[in-house]
């Protein structure tokens, strides 16, 4: 049953990949990458139990963290065109100077 569940999660990851390839906007890609990441976390857990060695959940924790971090990183990439500014203010000057829509 666990193996079936793992395969089910795997299938749903594949569907997410299709969305990531297809787009159409960059935000769709980001969404699917993010969602792919959280499904990976679950897959690690289920795979660990299916293999009878469930003590590698640390890696799942790391995945959850990494997923969060890269989402923020990519987000800043789009909104601010720099990794450097603080998110408490919005730098209009920089965002507008690029003069382009990320989904263009």
């Amino acid at each position: 049953m666990l193996v079936a569940a793992a395969l089910a999660i795997f299938v749903s990851m594949s569907l997410m990949l299709v969305r990531a390839f297809a787009g159409p906007t960059t935000y769709d890609r980001l969404l699917s990458v993010n969602s792919f990441g959280s499904k990976t976390v679950l897959l690690i857990g289920v795979m660990g139990f299916a293999n009878g060695r469930p003590d590698f959940l640390d890696i799942a924790i790391v995945y959850a963290l990494i997923n969060f971090v890269t989402t923020i990183g990519i987000l800043k990439f789009f909104r601010y065109r720099t990794l450097e500014v603080s998110l408490s203010t919005r730098r209009r000057a920089v965002a507008d100077a690029s003069g382009e829509r990320p989904d263009a």
Binding site: A6, K39, V46
Partner: peptide, 19 residues
Amino acid sequence: QGLVLAGAIVTIIGSVGVL
């Protein structure tokens, strides 16, 4: 095991939705 399977099915449903 049933809950895990149910959860997996829910994620598939969600993915179909995303697609």
